[in-house]
Design a protein around this nucleic acid. Structure first.
Ligand code: SF4
Ligand code: SF4
Lengths: 142, 142
DNA sequence: CGATATCCGATTAAATTTGTCGGGTATGGG
DNA sequence: CCCATACCCGACAAATTTAATCGGATATCG
């Protein structure tokens, strides 16, 4: 089970914007400088904007800015914006998608897990990334 | 973010086998009777078998049986067998996949979330499905 | 032996993800 | 006003992954 690159690119972009949040609008060009295809990233930023997570300024000197303080943006919001809401099985969201729907014990498990995972994702914010950049050189060489 | 049908089909098959665990080997045909393409399900059962979650009996009167008591089989095992281990970002498992690797604060978040989610998945077993099939008619009509 | 039913690699079909293209629109500065 | 800048957007193409099918091999019971 893997996340698509959207989630990764998206979160990384949010991290970049959080890092430079006091430096005015950041252009797509500069956000993409880490190796993400620029025009693809543009689509992704569009999703983040429509989700209200980033604000954009059009025209010359324009760019993107993070919309809220980092510690008020959860990873859940970012992932949901990029990959759509977590749906382990359709029946957890769309009631009528399966005849069994109600009696099905399997469904109970999917619902329970969906809630748990969403709670985990909602419990971490962008702000958490900036805490404790702790000891790294200790374990890595070169 | 969605699970592929493999996860769903797989868990449903496990549920079926758990339900009929004292009735001898269950044929592919009967497991598939719920609407899963038979030959596709065959592949999936193969994965579950190789993961040690189901046992098979070949030849006439053969079929599949659950390998362990339901309360000793976690959802994590099933999902891992069907979809591969959870990897939100390659860098969480494969150290060298990204230059930043160590210093990167984003990576910390991925690791933290991966652990949390795995813990959730490991905390639910097939046995949990058979508890409390509780009040259903109460909330649903037709 | 022969019916049954799992096993398995290869292939095809469908869907999704990833990336590209071309033009539109808003904005600041000269 | 004009023009360079840079976001906006729908449509398209390529690549990858998922879903499903096919054909035959192998094991086992009666
Ligand atoms: S069989 Fe159960 S878990 Fe599967 S889709 Fe239907 S209600 Fe949901
Ligand atoms: S940038 Fe950070 S999170 Fe992304 S792959 Fe590299 S180490 Fe992992």
């Amino acid at each position: 089970m893997k996340l698509s690159t959207r989630g990764k690119y998206g979160l990384y972009a949010m991290y970049y914007l959080a890092e430079h949040r006091n430096e005015g609008p950041q252009t797509l060009q500069s956000i993409a400088s880490t190796g993400v295809p620029k025009q693809y990233l543009e689509q992704l930023l569009g999703n983040l904007r429509r989700a209200g997570l980033v604000a954009s300024v059009r025209g010359a000197q324009g760019g993107y800015q993070i919309a809220k303080p980092p510690d008020q943006t959860t990873i859940l919001e970012v992932i949901d914006a990029m990959e759509g809401p977590l749906a382990l099985s359709e029946c957890t969201t769309d009631e009528g998608s399966c005849k069994h729907a109600c009696q099905c014990p399997v469904r109970k498990v999917w619902q329970r897990l969906t809630e748990s995972i969403n709670r985990e994702l909602a419990g971490v914010t962008l702000g958490d990334m900036f805490e404790e950049i702790d000891d790294c050189e200790a374990t890595v060489n070169e």
